[in-house]
């Protein structure tokens, strides 16, 4: 039924997919240096997954990943995000404290005042939060598209469950 699109589109989307994913991860990872961040990169990767969905059909896609797994992934991202915020409460003083800024090992360096050098090892807790949110957004947005596409493609014409339960 839903067999996806022509061979050309399938091939091109397969070739472009890793490219989109790595680019989305690049945007997520460089959220504190260049335009981007968790949401933007997540949206890019989710769009890439949506491309696979439209090229190969939702039945193929649901064979690769199910919406329950996506839901769990999303929960993981959300829990990671809120745990990072709670760690601010534990190591710092308040909720959402940026407790990593100022240390020397992990994302702790501080660029000089008004410096314009892009140093990856900065930003405190921001890169970690970017990844948590990125995971969440990827899983969430793709889950929306996947669920809607799969559910509507399995509807038959004129099919409707009876009104009485």
């Amino acid at each position: 039924m839903s067999m996806g699109m022509s061979k050309i589109v399938k091939t091109v989307s397969s070739v472009v997919f890793p490219f989109i994913v790595i680019y989305g991860l690049y945007i997520i990872a460089h959220g504190h240096l260049t335009p981007g961040g968790g949401f933007q990169g997540g949206a890019v990767v989710a769009s890439g997954c949506a491309m696979l969905l439209v090229a190969h059909g939702s039945i193929w896609t649901i064979g690769k990943i199910r919406e329950k797994q996506l839901s769990i992934l999303e929960s993981t991202g959300a829990v990671a995000f809120i745990l990072l915020a709670l760690l601010g409460l534990v190591f710092g003083t308040v909720f959402f404290k940026n407790f990593l800024v100022g240390n020397k090992f992990l994302f702790g360096e501080i660029p000089g005042y008004l410096s314009r050098v892009a140093n990856f090892n900065t930003g405190g807790v921001l890169p970690l939060m970017n990844f948590a949110v990125g995971l969440k957004v990827i899983a969430g947005l793709f889950a929306i598209v996947l669920v809607m596409a799969y559910a509507t493609s399995t509807f038959k014409k004129g099919e409707m469950e009876d009104g009485k339960r």
Binding site: H32, G37, F96, V101, I110, A118, T122, G124, V125
Partner: peptide, 14 residues
């Protein structure tokens, strides 16, 4: 304060 070059991200996450 935040250590990020990107002002928008520092507002969004910090």
């Amino acid at each position: 304060e935040v250590g990020a070059n990107n002002g928008v991200t520092s507002v969004v996450f910090d």
